[in-house]
Simulated scan of single mutants.
Amino acid sequence: MSGRRGPAIEVVSLRKTYGDVAAVADVSFSVARGEILGVLGHNGAGKTTTVECLQALRRPDGGTIRVAGVDPVAHPGRVRALVGSQLQSSSLPDRLRVGEALEFFASLRPGSRSPGELMREWGLSDLRRRAFGDLSGGQQQRLFVALALVNDPPVVVLDEMTTGLDPAARRVAWELVERVRDRGATVLLVTHFMDEAERLCDRLVVLSGGRVVATGSPGELVDRHAGEVEVTFSHRGELPGLAGTPGVTGVHRSGARVVVTGTGPLLARVAHHLVTVGIEPQDLAVHRPSLEDVYLALTGQGTP
């Protein structure tokens, strides 16, 4: 399959060990062009090692990787030219000015975009002479994104880009990620924030112990692994036939409060049944397990 027509990133049976420790034991996933793929996992799950291997920053011990059809082991220079990255440990000297940083990075890549153009695009023009150490967290993230895009790469890797940022700066960073994708780039986003994953990612890969334990969109993961859903409402009378409604596994009452447990589109099914039998409660509410609940269950962190 050619790089032009194939996925932007393809990882098959990736392995990477350090002595007796398997940082990545068996990881496979692909990223479609123009997609934002989120990589979730606790510390030590293998997230950073995986993205470092696909950027030709580490040499894997097994498996295959292709970035736009290019093998990072055989052609590390070509892959680095295809990928723009903001790594978890990204930093710059405190006294380096914004304009100087962009000019320096642009000088390293022939044919790079104009530093002035990047500053205008990412709202950095007024900060041209501002030292890195004097930037706010959100401003630093804007600069890192601009640096990652200096050579207009088709693939962008963002590793824990919002760690340590305040809520306002995190929102700014999210908007930056969406803008990167809107420009046509494919984004690999490593994060451990569930709200970030739900807001930004088309699909997720969940790692635990150096292996992939689940893949799918945020909604698909919740539907597939969340277990039972609860629908609650108030009603003191009889509830004919409710227990036999498709998807319902239990009906429990406590005074006027009714709790219906089950699976699938439970709220729609319960509401339809109640209206059919002439009951129209005004307080129907649904509680579904969250993506965080699913993540904790998948990675074994939700058990004592």
Rank of each mutant, 00 (worst) to 15 (best):
residue 150 V to W: 03
residue 174 W to V: 10
residue 149 L to T: 13
residue 59 R to K: 11
residue 55 Q to H: 02
residue 73 V to Q: 00
residue 268 A to L: 14
residue 258 V to A: 01
residue 208 S to A: 15
residue 133 G to W: 01
residue 10 E to C: 08
residue 38 G to E: 05
residue 52 E to Y: 00
residue 219 G to K: 00
residue 228 E to L: 06
residue 289 P to E: 08
residue 288 R to I: 02
residue 302 G to L: 12
residue 86 Q to H: 10
residue 16 K to A: 04
residue 275 V to R: 15
residue 139 Q to D: 01
residue 76 P to E: 00
residue 200 L to Y: 10
residue 85 S to Y: 01
residue 191 T to E: 11
residue 80 R to E: 06
residue 276 T to H: 13
residue 120 R to W: 02
residue 109 R to I: 07
residue 53 C to A: 02
residue 35 E to T: 00
residue 301 Q to G: 15
residue 161 M to T: 11
residue 4 R to F: 10
residue 99 G to L: 12
residue 78 R to I: 04
residue 163 T to N: 09
residue 273 H to R: 05
residue 141 Q to I: 10
residue 166 D to W: 01
residue 180 V to H: 14
residue 19 G to D: 11
residue 251 V to E: 06
residue 143 L to Q: 04
residue 185 A to W: 12
residue 93 P to F: 02
residue 268 A to Y: 10
residue 79 V to I: 06
residue 182 D to C: 07
residue 297 A to L: 11
residue 161 M to R: 03
residue 161 M to Y: 00
residue 202 D to F: 07
residue 175 E to M: 05
residue 58 R to P: 04
residue 130 R to K: 15
residue 121 E to D: 14
residue 159 D to G: 04
residue 32 A to K: 13
residue 282 Q to I: 01
residue 304 P to I: 07
residue 296 L to D: 01
residue 155 V to W: 14
residue 273 H to D: 00
residue 137 G to A: 06
residue 182 D to K: 14
residue 108 L to Q: 14
residue 15 R to F: 00
residue 60 P to L: 02
residue 3 G to H: 08
residue 93 P to C: 08
residue 168 A to E: 14
residue 213 V to I: 07
residue 49 T to E: 04
residue 279 I to V: 15
residue 8 A to V: 09
residue 291 L to C: 14
residue 279 I to H: 01
residue 295 Y to S: 09
residue 215 T to E: 15
residue 154 P to N: 04
residue 279 I to L: 14
residue 128 R to D: 00
residue 293 D to H: 09
residue 281 P to W: 12
residue 164 G to L: 01
residue 286 V to L: 15
residue 274 L to H: 12
residue 135 L to K: 02
residue 3 G to T: 08
residue 87 L to A: 13
residue 72 P to K: 13
residue 277 V to C: 06
residue 229 V to N: 04
residue 77 G to M: 09
residue 90 S to W: 11
residue 19 G to T: 02
residue 90 S to D: 12
residue 205 V to N: 12
residue 63 G to S: 05
residue 157 V to R: 09
residue 200 L to A: 11
residue 233 F to P: 14
residue 211 R to Y: 01
residue 217 S to W: 08
residue 190 V to N: 14
residue 288 R to E: 15
residue 31 V to M: 10
residue 14 L to I: 09
residue 104 F to M: 14
residue 46 G to S: 06
residue 1 M to W: 11
residue 216 G to L: 08
residue 246 P to E: 05
residue 211 R to D: 02
residue 84 G to D: 00
residue 85 S to P: 00
residue 28 S to K: 02
residue 172 V to D: 14
residue 123 G to R: 15
residue 103 E to Y: 03
residue 31 V to D: 02
residue 139 Q to T: 02
residue 281 P to R: 13
residue 207 L to K: 05
residue 198 E to P: 00
